[in-house]
C-alpha cells in the first residue's frame, strides 16, 4: 500500500529511521516541513522520548506542519518559547544529537555552501548567506537533504564552506578544532548517501525505488564510492504512511508534489 508517496514523504521516512529514541534534535528556521515531519514520525513510531528545537523559536511543539517555521502560530502548542541564540549555544556545546541542513552545493566530503558560486570577491552567483550553517556542524551528526540531485549541486569541491563536512578528508575536522560531529547521511530525490569511515568520502547507500545506480552516477559531479551491491531505499511502510498522513501531516503539505512511488 505504498502507492503514491512523494519524495518529501520518502525523505521524511528515511530521516525518521535515522533518529534514535531519547535524542535531542534541531530543525531549521526555513524549509523545515520535511525535518519536522521526520521528527514527529520518529516520535510516533519508535522514539517517543526524542525532543526537538524547531524553527528558531520553539522547543517541542504540537503545532501543525507548516512551510513557515518562524510564524507566530508555531509558538501555540510548544513546550517552550526559545530565543534563537539559546539553541545555537546548545549546538556549540555539543548537546544536540542531530540537525537537518541543506545547501546550494555539496561536495564529496559533505561540505555545504550557501554563500556564492565562483570566487567570493567576484561571485558569478551570490547566494543568500550561510544562516547558521557553521554552527550546525556542532551537532553530534547532521543530516543533509538536497532537493536537486544534479552535477550542478553535487560538485567535487564547494566554492565556499558554509557548513564544514569532512573538509578535505580524514583527520581534517580534528585539525580544524572540530572535536565531534560531521554529516551522517545525504538524502536527495534520487538516493541516500553516507560517508566511508576511512576516506570520509561520500558513498552511495541506497537508490530510491525506480532509480538506477547509473542515474545517480551521471547526476553526481564527483566519483561516488559505489559498493558492490546497492540496495533500494525501503519505500515508506504502510504504517509509516498511515502515521504521516493521519497524525503528522493531515493537511498534506508533503503530498503537494507529484507522487513517485
Amino acid at each position: 500500500m505504498s502507492q503514491g508517496y512523494t519524495i518529501s514523504e520518502l525523505m521524511a521516512c528515511v530521516f525518521a529511521r535515522e533518529i534514535k529514541d531519547g535524542e535531542l534534535g534541531g530543525c531549521p528556521g526555513v524549509r523545515s516541513e520535511v525535518p519536522l515531519a521526520s521528527v514527529r514520525l520518529a516520535q510516533r513510531m519508535h522514539a517517543p522520548n526524542t525532543t526537538c528545537y524547531y524553527g528558531a523559536i520553539v522547543y517541542n511543539t504540537d503545532a501543525p506542519l507548516s512551510k513557515f517555521a518562524t510564524e507566530y502560530d508555531r509558538i501555540i502548542g510548544a513546550e517552550a518559547s526559545v530565543a534563537t541564540y539559546e539553541w545555537f549555544d546548545t549546538l556549540h556545546r555539543g548537546d544536540i544529537d542531530f540537525f537537518f541542513v541543506g545547501g546550494m552545493q555539496v561536495d564529496m566530503y559533505g561540505n555545504l555552501n550557501l554563500v556564492c558560486l565562483g570566487d567570493w570577491k567576484k561571485p558569478t552567483l551570490r547566494g543568500p548567506g550561510s544562516a547558521g550553517l557553521n554552527t550546525v556542524t556542532f551537532a553530534r551528526r547532521h543530516f543533509i537533504w538536497i532537493n536537486e540531485h544534479t552535477s550542478r549541486v553535487f560538485v567535487p569541491k564547494v566554492d565556499f564552506i558554509s557548513c564544514p563536512g569532512y573538509l578535505d578528508g580524514p583527520g581534517a575536522r580534528e585539525g580544524a578544532g572540530l572535536r565531534w560531529g560531521g554529516p551522517s547521511i545525504v538524502v536527495s530525490p534520487l538516493a541516500v548517501m553516507d560517508f566511508d569511515q576511512e576516506t570520509k568520502r561520500m558513498r552511495l547507500r541506497s537508490v530510491h525505488p525506480g532509480v538506477t545506480v547509473d542515474e545517480v552516477k551521471q547526476n553526481t559531479g564527483f566519483e561516488l564510492i559505489i559498493p558492490d551491491s546497492v540496495p533500494q531505499t525501503p519505500a515508506p511502510s504502510e504504517e509509516e504512511l498511515r502515521v504521516l498522513r493521519t497524525e503528522v501531516d493531515p493537511a498534506g503539505i508533503l503530498r503537494n508534489e507529484e507522487p513517485v512511488g
Partner: peptide
C-alpha cells in the same frame, strides 16, 4: 553565520573587544 553574529553582538553587550567562539571553525 549566525554563531559568529551572536558572538559579535555579545562582545558589545559585555563591553569586550572580541568574543571567542567555536562558530566558524572549519568554515
Amino acid at each position: 553565520e549566525q554563531g559568529i553574529m551572536t558572538a559579535a553582538l555579545r562582545g558589545a553587550i559585555q563591553g569586550v573587544p572580541f568574543v571567542p567562539t567555536v562558530a566558524g571553525l572549519g568554515g
